[in-house]
């Protein structure tokens, strides 16, 4: 490595053996950390054969969990997509004081423990919470019921779309919007015809990520759900229950379904990236 770069090679190229070594180390690490766990889920699910796995998935409690998970994502994801679009537009295209603080607040759900996120809603809507009595009087259940699960999911998936769109919109600047406005377009028209189409790939990307998180959220939902089978059990919670009951085939069969969801997410994400080569992008 210390040899002077040969004339035939560009000075910034690495020697072939170094390349091979680094690629090898990375591939072994990724295989160990990422691929082996994924393979283990499917192997454990199919341990007693495909039939046993299908029976485990095709049971009323498991199906109810699938339905609840889909319902939760169907509410939380569109909500956060619309909010993310509004928030990133406000932040990227306008100047105002306290912007860094606002961005920090939007990011907060990323760095708040999901358990704390769930706790928050228990404190507000739980029996002893702020609205506890009022809710009981009006016979509305939030905690240990579906609304609580949806709220907790909205919280944890809150930043995905906005975080994806803010850098994108900042990069694009405001010149196109200014052109549209100067030619007589209204603000709303400009937003829908200029701003939104420009960020559609970033939007899809954020929606994909928040959908994966919405369907897979465990910590926050676990706190507010109450784990009532067939009623307030989402798929990840169902996995936990089965696993703790030593029904490993059942647990891994439902887990395998969630793995398929993850794989589909990754495939779509790769497709989105291929459709629109991404340049810079902030962390999550």
């Amino acid at each position: 490595m210390s040899a002077a770069p040969s004339r035939s090679r560009r000075a910034t190229d690495d020697p072939a053996w170094a390349k091979a070594l680094v690629i090898g180390v990375v591939l072994v690490f990724l295989a160990l950390v990422l691929i082996v766990p994924l393979a283990a889920v499917f192997a454990e699910a199919l341990r007693r054969g495909l039939d046993a796995a299908l029976v485990a998935v095709n049971n009323p409690d498991a199906l109810a969990a699938v339905k609840l998970t889909l319902l939760t994502a169907a509410i939380a994801v569109p909500f956060n997509a619309v909010f993310g679009l509004c928030a990133s537009w406000a932040i990227a295209k306008h100047e105002f004081r306290g912007k860094p603080l606002l961005i920090t607040l939007i990011d907060l759900p990323f760095s708040v423990s999901p358990v704390v996120a769930g706790l928050i809603y228990v404190l507000i809507f739980g029996m002893q919470g702020w609205f506890g009595e009022w809710l009981v009087d009006n016979d509305i259940k939030v905690i240990f019921a579906v609304p609580g699960i949806v709220l907790a999911t909205v919280f944890v998936t809150f930043p995905f779309v906005a975080r994806e769109l803010i850098p994108l919109m900042q990069e694009q600047g405001t010149s196109e919007e200014e052109a549209a406005i100067s030619m007589g377009a209204s603000g709303l028209y400009t937003f829908w015809r200029v701003t939104a189409p420009n960020v559609r790939w970033g939007l899809m990307y954020g929606v994909l990520l928040s959908n994966a998180r919405a369907m897979g959220e465990f910590g926050a939902v676990s706190v507010v759900s109450g784990h009532i089978r067939g009623l307030t059990n989402t798929m990840p919670l169902h996995v936990e229950i089965l696993y703790n009951e030593y029904d490993f085939v059942g647990a891994f069969a439902v887990a395998a379904l969630l793995c398929l969801l993850a794989v589909v997410t990754l495939v779509l994400k790769t497709a989105v990236e291929a459709a629109q080569p991404r340049t810079g992008r902030g962390g999550h």
């Binding site: 283990a40 454990e44 465990f218 910590g219 990840p236 996995v239 696993y243 891994f252 793995c259």
Partner: peptide, 12 residues
């Protein structure tokens, strides 16, 4: 790890 539910990663 972004796409896989954490509970699934946990049991795996």
């Amino acid at each position: 790890p972004f796409a896989l539910p954490t509970a699934v990663a946990g049991i795996a």
